[in-house]
Design a protein around this nucleic acid. Structure first.
Lengths: 302, 302
DNA sequence: TATTATATGAAAAGAAGTTTCACATTTCAA
DNA sequence: TTGAAATGTGAAACTTCTTTTCATATAATA
C-alpha cells in the first residue's frame, strides 16, 4: 500500500537517476540509432515540448514509424516506459525556457495576465523589502507602548485612511481601547484630547502631508507616544515619532507608489496586532491554543 | 494526418489556455470538491512532483478512492484527461522553487522578530497563491465590464469594507464614475438604484454574509454586472457573479484568516485598476509614457 | 417521510502502450 | 554468389491504463 513515506523514497530514487537531460541522452546515442529511430529522435530534439505532449500513437504517425519501434526506442534511451520518457522530455523542455526577470516593470505589449502578474510581483517585493527593514527593538518598544496605552488612536488621511481603518478594525478584536475616524477635523480633535498615557499610530505614505503633520504636532504637545508608519525616514513626521516603521518598495527609483506601500503598511499593522495579542494575554492562557483562538476570533465575517 | 504545422498550432492553442497553474486551479476549486475529491486534491497539493509521476491506479490506492473518481476529478479541473493533468502538474511542480513554500505557523517561543517575519511570510504566500489562481479570461471579462460601465460601485462590509474603500480610492483616479459608502443601508439603496449599464464590485471574504447577499440579490434583480472578490469559490456569492476572483492563502486547511485575504483582495483590485487604466486610455496616448504618468497621478498624497 | 439530486465504486468499455511473431533487410563468411 | 545469422520493422496479440456506464448509497429537499 502507498504511504507518504515510501512515496518520497520512490521519488528520491527516481530523481537520483536523472543525471543527464533527456535531450543530452538522445544526442549522445543519436548515431547508434537505426534509420527509423533517428526520425523519432530528430522530432524529439526539434520540438521536445510538443513531443512531450503526444501519445505514442500520435508520435508514431507524426514520424511515420510504428508504435513498436518507438516503444523500443525509449527503452534503448534507458527509460522504463513511454510515459517516463515524455515526462522527462517535458522536464527538460521546461528547464530550457528562459527564466523571468525578477524585477517587473509594466510595459507596452503586456497582456492582462502579465499586468496582473507584475502587480502581484511588485507587491511581494515591497513586502519583502519592508520585512527586511524591520528591527526587533522598534517592534518591542512599539508593542510596549501599545499594550500600556489607555487609548490607542489611529490617524491616517487620503490613501493612508485605508490603512488606518484596517488597523482600527484589527485592534477592535483586542481588549484595548481603540479609536479612529476618517474625518480630518475629528482626527485633530481626537489628537487634542489625548495624553501621555495614550498611544497614537500615525500612517502617512510621504510623511509630508500638512494635515497629518498638524495632527502630529498636536499629539506631541500633549506628550502622546507616537508610532509612525511611513515610506520616508527623513520626513518631519518620522522625526517626531517615538518609533518609526518604514514601508518600502524594492526599487528606490519608483518614487510614487503609495499603492504598493499600502499593503506593506497594513502588514506592519498586522504584525503589531499579532504581537500585541500574543504578549498582552500571555498571563491568562497557554500560548499555543491561544494563537488558534485568536485567529478564529479575529475572523473577518463578511 | 499529422504535420509539423498543425502540431504547433495545437500546442499554441493549448498553451494559451494555461494561464493558471495547476496548483492554483486546485486551490481555486478546492471547496467545491466532494469529500473524496478533496483527498486527491490534498495529496496533489502536498506533493505535486510525486503525484505527477503516478499512474491513475497508484494515485487511487494512495488516496483510497476509485480511479473513476480521479478521472472525474481531473475533468472537473478542466483537463481533458488524466495524462494532461499529470503533465501540467509536473510543469508547475518544476516551476515552484521549493525553498519559499514552507509554511510558517505562529508558535509559543516566537520572538517579536519571528512573529513579524512569519506574518510577512504568510502575506507573501497568500499573494502568490492568489496570483496563481487568476486566469486571463476572467480578467478580460472584468475589465470590459468595468470600462463600459456607466457607474462602478464598490460593496463591502465588515472587514471587507477596507478593501472596498481601497478600491474606491484607487478608481477615483480614473475617469470612471465610481461610488462607495461604508454604511450598509446606503449600500443597499445604491444597489437598488443600479441598472444593467452599471458594474458592481462586491468584496466579501466568506461570501456568506447575509447583508452582502441581500445587496447581491438586489443587484441581480436589476441586471447589474457583478464582479465578486471572495475566498470561497463555492459560496452563494460566487455563484451569483458574472466574474469571480479568489483571494487565497497558501494552505487550504487554514480556514479562518480573512486577515491575510485582505491584502490579496486589495492586490486583485490593484491589478484591475492598472488594467483598466492601461486599456481604457490606450487610444489617446502612447502606452509607455502613460504608465509613468498613471503612477504619478495615482499617487497617494498622505 | 418520500423524492430528488449527488456522489461513489465496480465493472465494462475503450485507449494507450508493450511484446510477440513473422517477415524483410543487411551483414558476413564460405 | 549464396546461405546463415543478425538486425530492423510493423501488424497484431496482449497487457496495462483510463474513461464511461450503471447500480447503489448517501445527502439534500420538499
Amino acid at each position: 500500500m502507498f504511504t507518504k513515506g515510501n512515496l518520497f523514497e520512490n521519488y528520491r530514487k527516481g530523481a537520483a537517476t536523472i543525471a543527464r537531460s533527456t535531450i543530452g541522452k538522445i544526442r549522445g546515442t543519436y548515431d547508434q540509432l537505426s534509420r527509423t529511430e533517428k526520425k523519432v529522435a530528430q522530432l524529439a530534439l526539434d520540438n521536445p515540448a510538443v513531443v512531450s505532449e503526444m501519445t505514442i500513437k500520435e508520435l508514431a504517425s507524426a514520424t511515420g514509424v510504428s508504435t513498436a519501434t518507438i516503444s523500443r526506442f525509449v527503452k534503448r534511451m534507458d527509460y522504463s516506459n513511454y510515459r517516463e520518457f515524455t515526462m522527462a522530455l517535458a522536464h527538460t523542455a521546461a528547464e530550457m525556457t528562459p527564466q523571468q526577470n525578477s524585477f517587473p516593470e509594466l510595459a507596452e505589449g503586456d497582456s492582462l495576465a502579465t499586468i496582473a502578474n507584475k502587480t502581484f510581483r511588485f507587491s511581494i517585493n515591497s513586502l519583502r523589502a519592508t520585512n527586511e527593514a524591520l528591527n526587533e527593538d522598534d517592534l518591542a518598544r512599539a508593542v510596549i507602548k501599545i499594550i500600556n496605552a489607555k487609548t490607542v488612536a489611529f490617524f491616517g488621511l487620503g490613501g493612508s485612511a485605508v490603512a488606518a481603518l484596517d488597523g482600527y478594525h484589527k485592534f477592535l478584536r483586542t481588549p484595548l481601547n481603540v479609536t479612529y475616524h476618517p474625518d480630518y477635523d475629528i482626527q485633530l480633535m481626537q489628537a487634542a484630547r489625548m495624553t501621555a498615557q495614550d498611544c497614537a499610530i500615525v500612517i502617512s505614505h510621504s510623511g509630508r502631508n500638512h494635515e497629518t503633520l498638524e495632527i502630529v504636532r498636536e499629539l506631541k504637545r500633549n506628550g502622546v507616544a507616537i508610532i509612525v508608519i511611513t515610506s520616508y525616514s527623513g520626513s518631519e513626521l518620522a522625526q517626531a515619532a517615538a518609533v518609526t516603521f518604514l514601508s518600502l518598495t524594492d526599487e528606490v527609483k519608483y518614487r510614487s507608489e503609495g499603492m504598493y506601500s499600502l499593503i506593506s503598511q497594513m502588514t506592519i499593522l498586522d504584525s503589531l496586532f499579532m504581537m500585541t495579542v500574543l504578549r498582552s494575554s500571555s498571563r491568562t492562557k497557554p500560548v499555543l491554543t491561544r494563537v488558534r483562538d485568536v485567529i478564529e476570533q479575529t475572523r473577518y465575517d463578511s
